[in-house]
Design a protein around this nucleic acid. Structure first.
Length: 812
RNA sequence: GCCGAGAUGGUGGAAUUGGCAGACACGUGAGACUCAAAAUCUCAAGUUGCUCAGGCGACGUGUGGGUUCAAGUCCCACUCUCGGCACCA
């Protein structure tokens, strides 16, 4: 027979799929819909193995469900705004749009070579005005609903380049362009009130039964709802009060100092009273150059005492010192804490270092506050009238007491911060707002959308947003009064683009609306979303939030966008993530041109289960290529005329193997998403076929098994399977064929072999009837020639038989 | 630092969720085919000690404890690796 010509075959079927529009999705209420979504790529210019993994996993779901008879939508697009395009513009003197479009064209070709079953008619790119127009439309809708506001926030600022830097552009506190020390600078920024939905985002987790628990856990912690109290501490010799948030109002008698974050505004108010102002100011400046992560992860906590200022603990009237320390963050709570060193390890460390009193207020069984903080439950001590009650009781009673005394009130707090969506950059969606001297800040009229990014701009290497100097963009008129006005030059965070793209896919060419609600409601929610675990918090919270906004605007009916989520593991190289910033990228091109897309897909699906990290190695690809050829050559096996007639027994065995395999593959894809074991069980069936040929061939049965193998492999290696399916005489695509069904009747076995252990160690095996009861099995074991000698001079203490699983005999 | 994962032969991984550890592959070795090689097909193999060569035994799932007739799986305490930490996407 002819060798498998992989390149020719793959091209041929990709053309047929394209010409016949095999994967085009259309609304059809007579069929069950299935929306398979993969996280759309950033067009970096090169497809990498992480993409191949993502889209191969997605394609298995899409093709499998298509074969189950569902109406599948499987779209793709480009997350095409972002920082790298601007970097390329500066570095290679190319317009961000040109660079992006070139990359899309190239990656489009790479993607098509993989033979993923996309509906290409729905392709989108977020940098197209037809797309980002609707970002602006949503922005205005949210502005109207009062969900958009402005306030100042700190940004990374390079004093030398005079520009805002992304976190990625700051390396160990210095600017990546000029190595200057990066500062924190306060700038007016645009925010979306995501916290209005914080409770609903938490509540919504209950609906997400098809999400991995670890992702839910991460989101819960990210949103970080905590119950506690807001309390005011009087600053001694002044009329000012210091507001703090605590989750432990029960420990108020143990407060022996206060800590302010370096950004806290009250510090400057007391500048004249602070005796060591110079030292304090120096500390504040130093911490401004540190990132939050650096501040939180430093082993040794640092701080400076505000000399000359102190606070009063309302519970016991004690005068307590105030510190400024960068382990307290301005973004959480009120940016100030009451420190209880006896019952919080961070406070304990700090108190030890600065020699502050540690007052125990909860006594536990083995608590020793001289050794470490005691953070568990116990009985109250040193707490006035609350002494003797449990800490759990104190948590109920003391906040009430605090409220009665007017020191504070019970409240809830979230770690989730308002979504800062403005960026001082060019390559993003322009924020559709206009600044008018008379009318203030006004939204652009809806019919004037989109506010187009001007293309005639200059990029300089100072990193400044080119919009700020672009007169034709800046100058406009006020939509309200018609007077001369200027446009907002900030653009949107690219997370906006990716927050609703899944809905745009349902009606990707709509020019009048973001999408038609009927179409969106037919396809949504997404039945299976596949993407990297690194998006567990940010992207997956933002898009859940956006979905609820769309629901409240009456655009969609569902509460949640993604019904089931599969978080694929990273593809790493040498243990660390492949990423454009690290430059350790393996290009799939080489593998595809040498072995074909099927091999690349098969290897990546076979090498590890989808959720686990996969460290790339070239070993093993060859083996998958061999397997593909082995399947191809099964055509020969069909034609072997054996001298020996197939026995009923061997036929029965083969038939059983086939049904076992169908069951295993179906369940592995559907329930466990274990594609690696699904593939290995098909490998086993192929091995059985090869052995079977020596036991006498039966053309009819062999063909049935072969067709089954081809159907089972179709979601993994579609090109190969189309070709064989065609050669076996089928007119229609295997992509649209029916998924095989298994029959339990062929799988059942009457007699099975089970292990026999003595004192937990394997000593032999015994054949039992699956319905045998303990006594029957015991008799069998005791009569067994090989086994009975093992307890001739022993006493049987216990005989354990687990039905159709194992025998364990405890002897002395 | 905080939050979330992970660790099983020389390698990637499997193990019906407490019941035969190492399926299926890679790599390795042997055999068949061949003048020969490649390809292909078949077989072998966790480590290790005895061995009459058929076997018999010990040790084995990151480390140290525990529960159980039985632990990769459950509990406690650690170590290391990876992901995220809000302007990379």
């Amino acid at each position: 027979m002819v060798d498998y010509n992989v390149n020719e075959v793959e091209k041929k079927w990709q053309q047929i799929w394209h010409d016949k529009k095999v994967f085009k999705a259309q609304e059809d209420t007579s069929k069950e819909k299935y929306y398979l979504l993969v996280m759309f790529p950033y067009p970096s210019g090169n497809l990498h193995m992480g993409h191949v993994r993502n889209y191969s996993i997605g394609d298995v779901f899409a093709r499998f469900n298509r074969m189950l008879g569902k109406n599948v939508i499987h779209p793709i697009g480009w997350d095409s705004f972002g920082l790298p395009a601007e970097n390329a513009a500066i570095k290679h003197n190319i317009h961000p749009k040109t660079w992006t479009k070139q990359n899309i064209a190239k990656m489009n070709e790479q993607l098509k070579m993989l033979g993923i079953s996309y509906d290409w008619d729905r392709e989108i790119a977020t940098c197209d005005p037809e797309y980002y127009k609707w970002n602006q439309w949503f922005f205005i809708k949210m502005w109207e609903k009062g969900l958009i506001f402005r306030k100042t926030a700190n940004v990374n600022w390079c004093p030398s380049c005079k520009t805002v830097l992304a976190n990625e552009q700051v390396n160990q506190g210095v600017c990546w362009r000029c190595d200057s020390q990066v500062e924190q600078k306060e700038l007016e920024q645009w925010f979306i009130k995501i916290t209005d939905y914080a409770d609903e985002l938490l509540e919504g987790h209950k609906e997400l039964t098809g999400w991995p628990e670890q992702v839910i856990a991460m989101q819960k912690n990210w949103i970080g709802k905590s119950h506690g109290a807001e309390m005011n501490f009087q600053i001694a010799d002044s009329d000012k009060k210091l507001k703090i948030f605590t989750t432990r109002p029960d420990t108020i008698f143990g407060v022996s100092f206060m800590v302010l974050s370096p950004e806290h505004s009250i510090i400057k108010e007391f500048k004249n009273k602070i005796a060591n102002w110079q030292e304090v100011e120096k500390y504040i400046i130093a911490s401004a150059s540190k990132s939050n992560i650096e501040r939180a992860s430093s082993k040794e906590k640092t701080g400076v005492k505000l000399e000359g200022v102190s606070a009063i603990n309302p519970a016991n009237g004690k005068n307590i010192p105030i510190f400024v320390a960068d382990y307290v963050l301005i973004g959480y709570g009120t940016g100030a804490i009451m420190a209880v060193p006896a019952h919080d390890q961070r406070d304990w460390d700090f108190a030890r270092k600065y020699n502050i009193e540690i007052t125990e207020v909860i006594k536990g069984n083995n608590s020793d506050i001289n050794k470490s903080a005691y953070e568990d439950e116990g009985f109250m001590v040193n707490s006035g009238k609350f002494d003797g009650i449990t800490s759990a009781e104190a948590r109920e009673q003391m906040p009430v007491w605090v409220e009665e005394n007017g020191w504070g009130k019970r409240t809830t707090n979230f770690k989730l911060r308002e979504w800062l969506i403005s960026r001082q950059r060019y390559w993003g969606t322009p924020i559709p707002m206009i600044h008018c001297e008379k009318c203030g800040t006004v939204p652009v009229n809806e019919h004037d959308l989109p506010v187009q990014l001007p293309e005639n701009i200059k990029f300089t290497d100072d990193g400044k947003s080119p919009l700020q100097g672009c007169e034709e963009f800046l100058n406009t008129t006020c939509p309200k009064c018609g007077a001369k006005a200027t446009r907002e030059t900030d653009t949107m965070d690219t997370f906006v683009d990716s927050s609703w793209y899944y809905a745009r896919y349902t009606d990707a060419r709509n020019n009048n609306k973001p999408f038609d609600s009927d179409k969106a409601n037919y396809w949504l929610p997404v039945d299976q979303y596949v993407g990297g675990i690194e998006h567990a918090c940010m992207h997956l919270i933002y898009s859940r939030f956006w979905h609820k906004i769309m629901r409240d605007l009456g655009l969609v009916k569902s509460n949640e966008p993604f019904k089931n989520l599969l978080t694929q593991g990273m593809v790493t190289l040498g243990g660390s993530a492949m990423s454009k910033s690290k430059g350790n990228i393996v290009s799939p091109d080489e593998i595809v041109s040498k072995y074909g897309a099927d091999t690349a897909r098969l290897f990546i699906l076979f090498a590890a289960p989808p959720e686990k990290q996969l460290d790339w190695s070239d070993d093993g690809v060859e083996g998958c290529w061999r397997f593909i050829n082995r399947v191809w050559r099964l055509q020969d096996v069909l034609n072997i005329k054996s001298d020996v007639a197939a026995t009923d027994k061997s036929k029965e065995e083969l038939l059983r193997s086939m049904h076992v395999c169908i069951k295993k593959v179906t369940e592995d894809i559907q329930k466990e998403h274990q594609f690696n074991t699904a593939i290995s069980s098909v490998m086993e069936l192929v091995n059985v076929m090869y052995v079977y040929k020596y036991h006498g061939n039966d053309g009819c049965l062999s063909k049935e098994v072969y067709e089954t193998i081809v159907l089972l492999l179709a979601p993994f290696t579609p090109h190969l399977c189309e070709e064989i399916w065609n050669l076996l005489g089928h007119k229609d695509c295997v992509s649209c064929a029916k998924w095989p069904k298994y029959n339990e009747q062929y799988i059942k076995q009457e007699v099975i072999e089970i292990p026999v252990q003595i004192n937990g160690k394997l000593k032999g095996k015994i054949a039992v009837n699956i319905s045998s009861q303990e006594q029957e099995v015991k008799d069998l074991v005791l009569k067994n020639d090989k086994l009975k000698n093992l307890f001739i001079d022993k006493m049987i203490v216990k005989f354990i038989y687990i039905q159709s699983k194992i025998v364990n005999i405890v002897v002395k």
